[in-house]
């Protein structure tokens, strides 16, 4: 399998002086389901956002799908972004718009400005959006406003939106952190399905080791902006866990 993501010596120093990433080197193979572990503030979110330049990295090299992300500007950057789906902890849907419109917004990287202004999408796109909603089991909620959906449903709409982009990679930034355990598992199940059936590479930051073991094919742990662990989920024993989360940490099992 070829590398789809390659990070070389990636640094991010925020304006306030916080050194969030301290020279991250990472290679991700196509089709991997990579779980990012680490305490809050360890640099997981920064890493994911640097990779599609929602946050500007300070130095280093990023290659995704053989494209140099760092030097990309304007149209080329947008072309790179449209193949990278992104899922957020707070779902980040447009709350007073319908689920369907939210899903359609995933196609914005492909359509002209005029289509965006008039909110008139091609009927093939609308059909695709409905199909993607069906895939996440929400076709009957297409006309519902996003704000009226439950947390789990909103996150599934967000997954459908990412699917509209026809992504090669999906970055998921703590996608289940604000969901209850049962819903969290069902959302992860959809991500797992995309990984297996559509061969989409997934980078997902998590806090639950049980979910990491169940869905991840590889685990990378960050601590203070450095990678402190890189291996399979099975390799994380009690000692490794304490290395990542600190001496006082106890693993909380959710079933």
């Amino acid at each position: 399998m070829k590398n789809i993501i390659k990070l070389t010596d990636l640094h991010k120093i925020y304006e306030g002086g916080t050194h969030a990433l301290k020279g991250v080197n990472l290679e991700v193979k196509e089709g991997e389901f990579l779980i990012l572990l680490g305490l809050s503030g360890s640099g997981k979110s920064t890493l994911l956002r640097c990779m599609n330049r929602l946050i500007e990295p300070t130095s280093g090299k990023i290659e995704i799908d053989d494209e140099n992300v760092i030097t990309a500007k304007g149209k080329r950057l947008r072309k790179i972004r449209r193949h990278i789906g992104m899922i957020f902890q707070q779902f980040n849907l447009i709350k007073n718009m319908s689920a369907l419109t939210n899903v359609l917004s995933g196609k914005l990287g492909y359509v002209t400005l005029w289509h965006a202004i008039t909110f008139s999408m091609h009927k093939n796109d609308v059909a695709l959006a409905l199909k993607n909603l069906q895939r996440v089991g929400l076709e009957q909620f297409a006309k519902n406003k996003a704000r009226n959906l439950s947390g789990g449903q909103q996150q599934r709409v967000a997954i459908a939106r990412a699917l509209m982009q026809n992504p090669r990679v999906i970055f998921a930034d703590e996608p289940v952190a604000s969901l209850d355990p049962a819903t969290a598992d069902s959302v992860m199940k959809y991500l797992g399905e995309l990984n297996k059936n559509d061969n989409i590479t997934i980078l997902c930051s998590l806090h639950f080791l049980s979910l990491a073991r169940k869905y991840g094919t590889r685990v990378v742990a960050l601590k203070d902006g450095n990678i402190v662990f890189d291996g399979t989920p099975k390799e994380i024993d009690n000692k490794k866990f304490k290395d990542i989360y600190g001496e006082d940490a106890e693993e909380v099992e959710i079933r």
Partner: peptide, 13 residues
């Protein structure tokens, strides 16, 4: 700002 970030991430101008 969440939705702004999300829409930007789709490759929208």
């Amino acid at each position: 700002t969440g939705p702004v970030e999300a829409i930007k991430a789709t490759g929208a101008s």
